[in-house]
């Protein structure tokens, strides 16, 4: 895990690449970088807003014992956050004061979402595909291997069980992803068309390394 501040002095491109291979767009809006961790080979695209400044204000009794910077957003490996997405840690009023809770996102999560859509889930597990224009209300929990269809609104505190396909406003379970979810099969590693009939080299819910590599 590395903080995204450790930047390499690279040629002027769209992305700043960190030592662990994270690609962060120069045009992204990240506040409170000290409170954000990226797992490596994770992509933060242009106009993405990461509200790292919204961290817990409670006296941190951290498990590691050290009185350090509280984490507000942690993102795993090979996760892609697309253009315009807003990640905002969930907040709950406690004795008249707002208190923010850290947001955790797993590995190989593809957040397509898009402009001005706010994601405030408390936890998003690995191998999740979040479609365009999806809004996730505070404290929602998204388990592994979930597909959220475009234009869905996930209501607050909803727990989406692993293997579900959800859609609608408010979101409800509309199906199951199938046993082959995220499995690219023997077709991976060469050529086009690994994706479910489309031309991408990756599959929804699968390993996003190829996708991350192609973004530059």
């Amino acid at each position: 895990m590395s903080r995204p501040i450790a930047k390499k002095a690279a040629a002027k491109g769209e992305y700043i690449e960190t030592d662990s291979g994270n690609k962060v767009s120069r045009r992204s809006a990240i506040t409170g970088t000290a409170n954000i961790t990226l797992g490596g080979r994770t992509v933060i695209m242009a106009d993405v807003v990461l509200r790292g400044d919204l961290h817990s204000t409670r006296p941190t009794a951290s498990s590691s014992g050290k009185e350090g910077t509280p984490t507000s957003i942690s993102i795993g490996k090979c996760t892609v956050v697309s253009t315009g997405t807003v990640l905002k840690p969930p907040c709950r009023m406690s004795r008249g004061a707002p208190n923010f809770y850290p947001m955790k996102i797993g590995d190989n999560v593809f957040i397509v979402v898009g402009p001005n859509c706010v994601i405030s889930a408390i936890a998003i597990s690995s191998h999740v595909h979040i479609g365009a224009n999806v809004t996730i209300h505070p404290f929602a929990v998204i388990k592994e291997n979930v597909k959220i269809l475009p234009n869905t609104v996930v209501p607050g505190a909803m727990v989406i069980a692993s293997g579900s396909v959800v859609g609608g406003r408010p979101a409800r379970i509309v199906g199951e992803v199938g046993e082959g979810w995220g499995v690219s099969g023997g077709g991976a590693g060469g050529g086009l068309g690994v994706g479910g009939g489309s031309e991408e080299k990756w599959v929804e819910g699968g390993d996003l390394r190829e996708l991350v590599r192609s973004i530059r």
Binding site: V112, G193, S198, E199
Partner: peptide, 17 residues
């Protein structure tokens, strides 16, 4: 085998954009 189709003149797959 996995069968897929794409337009020949489609831009090379730069994702998302």
């Amino acid at each position: 085998p996995r069968l897929s189709i794409r337009a020949l003149n489609a831009t090379p797959p730069i994702p998302v954009a």
